[in-house]
Amino acid sequence: MAECIECGADVTLHDDLEVGEIVDCATCGAELEVLAVDPVELDAAPELEEDWGE
């Protein structure tokens, strides 16, 4: 569990959390980037860029 940096709600996290992963806040819908896992640190995820994809 971690705190959403946008709305302050608790964010549920998976056990296999990875640095660089994006998690969604179920309360406000914010996309959050995992900056660290031990302890968990979240920040606002980068906005979609035009050249993202596969």
Binding site: D16, E18, V19, G20, E21, I22, E33, V34, A45, P46
Partner: peptide, 24 residues
């Protein structure tokens, strides 16, 4: 990487399970 999608998680899990030393 700059973002770990589920695709990267699948690869990371498989590589680690096989004992490889993975540097993200």
């Amino acid at each position: 990487y700059s973002r770990i999608r589920r695709d990267e998680k699948l690869l990371l899990a498989e590589l680690r399970e096989r004992g490889h030393d993975v540097t993200k």
